[in-house]
Design a protein around this nucleic acid. Structure first.
Lengths: 345, 345
DNA sequence: TCTAGTCGCTAGAACGTTCCAGTCATGCCG
DNA sequence: CGGCATGACTGGAACGTTCTAGCGACTAGA
């Protein structure tokens, strides 16, 4: 009673092995394994039994090679970015529901986007989903000429031939945050921005227009930041040591907000007593009970579903659907009020 | 001058297309693409030129199907675990150096380890590297019977047939931390443990033996914790509200320590003034300038290198090398002293 | 001049699967 | 009983590579 595959030599069992054992043709085994119609109930059971006995496992490569469709979607993501992790999780779920497989390719310090995409292409993906891609727009457009490409969280100039885009309405999110703060009575609201990070421009714009709309143009103040804790901490240090302290801070994202929070706490600046802080993303970080960050939530599940949906539609609709309708899905954000915001002193 | 592939129908170009264009056989094109010897310099250039012109890109699936070797290592990792992200980064680098490819398969809330492993097996990986696997030892042993398996950061009873193990000396790390704290003059050192998380048992043991060795058995105190910020925060709250406050806390890992830090800061407990805090992992979190956590560093790059090395050795050495030598690599940790530890008041 | 070795290249058979076109019963309708 | 769907099943050709022979033409040593 061994659990190791019962095939003479060390090779892994194939369709032919199962077929031989069940006394049928390989074609029929293939039918059974794919759960396709064309096999009788009794034979089906017999084949499955044989497959189980010798520990047969279909070879994904061979399957993909033969069938025209690969039903494979390549996903490029930043390994160190928690927000991407959330997105990938959603993409897995959405793809599974649509009957597609996912091939992951990570971008790290030592592995460029270029390389990540190349491996995905070599794997015969039918479509690519790029999470927060940093590559030049021209490169992305070229890629989109070869296969359906969906850019998530990176805004691109809409064009008929370029990648499709799925993103959160960053400006709208920043507006909601500002409205919330102003509604609480704040006037000195500072924005620690995200620099060149995807989405940063939109959030900056949203902050500006919202402040102006409230007649607070004179209080406009954008501090250079970034998408990391360090960036937030640096900005907060500048606020603590120099310059007049605002009554509220809108950070580029949750990690940035976390850096701000930490420096404030260390400097004895009470949150939300002395200063209110708002983040962006509603990442796991923000939800942690002991942080309880007020933040602008992105609907990650929906972004993922839309991205997969667009990719699948393009793949199944062929090139024809490339030109139809909007090439951009914009998902509305939702302010999540937690414990880091309150009326000013 | 179009950038789209110059093949009549919409199909992606193959070896045959390149061969036709260059006026040679497909076998020769294969040789050239693989950079193998057996082709003249002039022809080589001509073939490459042709390939470039029609935008040829080798098909990884077909290649893998045909060649006996796949040179593919499957990696299972926890999508939400930053420490795994660091490891994966190292694994990518090590694998590349060894001439192997990596196939990633993530474990998430909605995607079990079982499923992750299944897709890797279907992809014909030659070996599996599992990061902090939670599956029962029996299941891992069964898997190891089918192909080389390396478990990283999860300790397993050494056996000739089970998975190989690469891990940090968790007990030794805890010991270093305790030595450091005791050396500073601390006696009331509490350990917030990791519960059932991989490595937790070793760190608990190291803490206990180190305390005893220093004659501080009476001060032994292990609080139930876990690998997340919430767990650390919960333990810290208990320390702040009830019971005598220790002068130092050794947390299971950096995330846990971060939760402890946050609660302490909020409660007005100065770190390291009132209490010293030590983490574990030396993750990006600990290195952040504004946190500056004293922590026990795991040599991630080395763990990754060893894991890949073991996998490759088993693959290339065949089953023969399965029985030889140790089946466990234990990497020594290194205490990284930063700003969260100081002599007690 | 004969061998033997190297070099550049090609034909054709794998690899493990799916797809297509059938074959052979069987059942049903008129 | 003829005709003709319908369903179960099979043979064999793909899919895009790599691998094993082996071929012809040189070179070089004896």
């Amino acid at each position: 009673m061994s659990l190791t595959p019962a095939v003479p030599d060390g090779k892994r069992p194939t369709l032919a092995d199962v077929a031989a054992r069940a006394g049928v043709s390989t074609a029929l085994v293939s039918i059974v394994m794919r759960d396709a119609k064309g096999a009788g109930a009794a034979t089906r059971e017999r084949v499955l039994q044989a497959a189980r006995e010798i520990g047969y496992r279909p070879d994904a490569r061979a399957r993909l090679l033969r069938s025209r469709r690969s039903r494979l979607i390549g996903v490029q993501f930043g390994l160190q970015h928690p927000f991407h992790a959330d997105l990938v999780e959603g993409v897995y779920a959405a793809a599974e529901a649509a009957g597609y497989q996912i091939a992951l390719s990570a971008v790290t310090a030592g592995r460029s986007e270029q390389r990540a995409v190349e491996t995905l292409l070599a794997d015969r993906c039918e479509a690519l989903i790029l999470l927060g891609p940093q590559a030049p727009a021209a490169r992305l457009a070229e890629l989109a000429g070869q296969l359906p490409v969906v850019s998530v969280a990176r805004r691109l100039r809409p064009s008929g031939s370029g990648p499709e885009v799925v993103r959160t309405a960053d400006d709208e999110g920043a507006r909601q945050a500002v409205d919330h703060l102003v509604g609480l009575g704040h006037r000195d609201v500072v924005h620690v921005d995200g620099g060149r990070a995807p989405g940063a421009a939109g959030r900056r714009r949203g902050y500006r227009t919202a402040m102006n709309r409230h007649g607070l143009g004179a209080h406009l103040r954008v501090m250079p930041g970034g998408p990391t804790e360090e960036a937030g901490a640096a900005a907060a240090r500048a606020l603590v040591t120099a310059g007049p302290r605002p009554t509220a801070v809108l950070a580029f994202n949750d990690r940035c907000a976390s850096g701000v929070l930490d420096v404030f706490l260390r400097a004895g600046v009470a949150v939300p007593g002395d200063v209110s802080v708002v983040g962006f993303d509603d990442s796991r970080l923000a939800r942690l009970a002991h942080i309880g960050l007020t933040t602008v939530g992105q609907d990650v599940a929906r972004l993922a579903r839309l991205a997969v949906g667009r990719a699948v539609a393009r793949v199944e609709g062929g090139a024809a659907s490339g030109g139809t309708g909007a090439v951009e899905d914009v998902v509305p954000p939702r302010l999540v009020v937690r414990g880091t915001t309150a009326p000013p002193r």
